[in-house]
């Protein structure tokens, strides 16, 4: 079943830079998709369009029945509640503990306290950080911080997880740990779309790979590797 459908999408920033042009893409439910390409190829723009941080100038983006391109500013939360986003810079709140950072995403729904606690602990267990729940983000390593961010992104059980260079700041071993977590999440049924330029990871995972170059879709391989795409 199709989860994301992108038709004829164009994105031009106000400064005149064209980030994406005439992009067509379909992503099935439960897929794990890498979006690769050089800097400025439009990877991050694609992720931003998918969680409606940016709006396309042209075209249609449908995620789980929501017309993302037409979503009004005041209704963006309806989309965001159905997906999780993970960034290169983690975006954790430094004054909240690990537990509070993750619970933050549930508290806005007004769930009962017990439910928030149970779900938060479950998410922390999944990323292997249950024992660090009471620590603050600056007491953790980069990899651990990214796990917290992933836990926050999946704590309300989204259908889709978007990752924008989640391993960009991490060393190879740590990065691979993160990928294992993402794979587990994917195996549980969550669709994962990840923008990256980390060759090793893409080669090792053998997942669907989408190559962008100057805003155009160049190649789309079912079980691709980074090396043969770029070379």
């Amino acid at each position: 079943m199709e989860l994301i459908r992108i038709r004829g999408v164009e994105k031009q920033y106000k400064n005149g830079v064209t980030a994406l042009c005439n992009l067509n893409l379909s992503i099935k439910k439960g897929d794990f998709v890498f979006v690769i390409g050089a800097s400025g190829s439009g990877k991050s723009t694609l992720i931003k369009l998918l969680h409606r941080e940016e709006r396309p100038n042209k075209g249609q983006i449908i995620i789980g029945g929501i017309d993302v391109a037409k979503l009004k500013n005041g209704k963006v939360y309806k989309l965001r509640r159905k997906l999780g986003v993970v960034f290169q810079d983690f975006k954790l709140l430094p004054r909240l503990t690990v537990f509070e950072n993750v619970a933050f995403a549930l508290e806005i729904f007004g769930l009962p306290k017990d439910e928030i606690r149970d779900k938060t602990i479950k998410a922390l267990e999944l990323v292997g950080l249950k024992n660090k729940a009471k620590q603050f983000p600056n007491q953790l390593s980069g990899g651990e911080q990214q796990r917290v961010a992933i836990a926050r992104a999946i704590v309300n059980g989204p259908k889709l997880l978007l990752c924008d260079e989640p391993t960009g700041n991490l060393d190879p071993d740590t990065s691979f740990g993160i990928m294992k977590v993402l794979e587990v999440i994917n195996n549980m049924g969550t669709t994962v779309v990840m923008a990256t330029h980390d060759k090793e990871i893409v080669d090792r995972m053998k997942k669907r790979v989408i190559l962008l170059d100057e805003g155009k879709l160049i190649k789309d391989y079912a079980k691709g590797t980074y090396s043969n795409e770029v070379a």
Binding site: N73, Y77, K91, I108, A153
Partner: peptide, 11 residues
């Protein structure tokens, strides 16, 4: 971040 995790404007 509140917006990112799905808080409505009113939230």
């Amino acid at each position: 971040i509140m917006r990112l995790v799905g808080a409505s404007n009113f939230n």
